[in-house]
Design a protein around this nucleic acid. Sequence first.
RNA 1: CGGGGCGUAGCGCAGCCUGGUAGCGCGCACGCUUGGGGUGCGUGAGGUCACCGGUUCAAAUCCGGUCGCCCCGACCA
Length: 575
Amino acid sequence: MRWNTTFIPTLKEDPADAEVISHRLLVRAGMIRQVSRGIYDYLPLALKVIRKIENIVRQEMDRAGAQELLLPIASPAELWQESGRWEVYGKELFRFKDRHERDFCLGPTHEEVITDLVRRVVRSYREIPFNLYQIQIKFRDEVRPRFGLMRGREFIMKDAYSFHADMEDCRREYEKMFQTYKRIFTRCGLNFRPVEADTGAIGGTLSHEFQVLADSGEDALVSCNSCDYAANVMKGEIKAQRLSGRNLKESSPPLKKVATPGKKSVAEVAEFLSLPTAKFIKTLVYKVDQKELVAVLVRGDHEVNALKLKLALNCQEASLADEARVDETTHVVPGFLGPIGLGLRIVADQAIQGIRGAVTGANEENFHYLEVDQERDFTPSAFADLRMAMAGDPCPRCDHGALESYRGIEVGQIFYLGKKYSEAMGATYLDAEGREQPLEMGCYGIGITRLLAAAVEQNHDANGIIWPFSIAPFHVLLLPVQYKEKAIREVADSLYEELLKRGLEVLMDDRDERPGVKFKDADLIGIPLRITIGAKGLGKGCVEMRRRREGQTEEVPVGEAANKIHLFVTEALKV
RNA sequence: CGGGGCGUAGCGCAGCCUGGUAGCGCGCACGCUUGGGGUGCGUGAGGUCACCGGUUCAAAUCCGGUCGCCCCGACCA
């Protein structure tokens, strides 16, 4: 392709509305433009990368025996009402009415649609298993779209759904997809890690996320420094605590009430009393399912995991109650709350069980209790794992490992769904004994456009993007320093033709621009291999071959250039 | 949903406080110049100052409202 006739509107300056690096570079490189919040145009260069990613995904999904299909973007409310998600999904589900006033939504994911298709077709165990996937635009009306392509409202996704007779077969497919995903992300040239994950709005009981490691990532992760345990913090398990042999004879010193004027947060009180935050019991009031207030206790240095809390309380929704509400019910200013004498139902994290010598609010403004002894002073209605995993925690899977924390961008997630959708929507088959059984299901997603952004987050330098070869928009950029000059043009043209003939993807910068402009743009758009053709090299009968990533330059005789470039690209694509 | 910020030429910004009819850099067009990391000089085109309303002789500027976009938060008592 010749630059003169392409549509690659590069920008010298960072766009004012872009914050994260991938967003800035993708806009500057002329790859994306924003249309509305969380909605973008994909320009030709970006589309080339998207197609590359899609093709890798297709090849690997097909190799794993899955089949591609295409489901509609809009689906009728009835399907979502059947699964119960019309009510549950909330505002993220973009709803609208057609001209006949019938309710529809834009698909944020397609379990309902595919289950509906499959239930109308599958009758017998002989017709399963199979795995169907599509690559398509999804729409989720995110609370807060941000970071360019990383969290958009409209995005491209590969989603796959598999159907099985029993759990064993479904688990087998899950494992196959796990391996397939590893191949896909490896081929895309990403540094990633699979982690155990929560199943969120999709549902099911087993799930892994594939996280591209990046400090700018939205997800907090933990992994063991000794075994291969890794999880999203939302899912991260806490090693069950052994109650260290508590000496029952030894009695605790009596409760002591101390003045802590104006000190509300654990950090403030801890500093005021010169005590470590681990000695504190935090008392948080949650509103459960829009009605009951429940007090949740965690250690001062721990954080409540709302997800685990919901599980423990077996409720739909649990969020911090607002101050006014807390005040009205307990007559205590938040900040001085404590479990002793609090007129609310109490649930406590397991780390609170048996705690002694602790500090809590005294349920009286400007006072805290010291020497709190859980067994003596208060009894929660339940103890459970309610907190977020964090760095330094002992590994829940092995004996001596400790957890480390890092951040990631979730580019893929796989779920074992079980019978959640098949039972709700009556997707069944007849087994060999003629009995009707609900189908077992799995589902498997990859965020294609988010993967594109993640690749940039992980592969760039001060000058621009550095595409991994496998997903680069072009393999080679030919850069004739002065295309106008006959000698240079002739070499550039013949090299261009020769490389195309060999099946390489080549972009030729035939613009009549200053060399500096061309070099800057070349770095910005990040084609992995750049061939400079200029008077300097031609004087020696050479062109220059430069790798974008390493910056390493090599002079190659004109006659050998095509061969050498071809060989280099072939090698680079082998990985 | 709460808080903060922004909206002036294609892009990045100044002007607004202290009202007097719009400016800089880049880009764009043309000419000369230059020609291996965003050349230099000159000439020129390009703006309902987001929108609606108000105050005023006069509004980009002051006041009220609306819309759009960005950032932070929406969980730590």
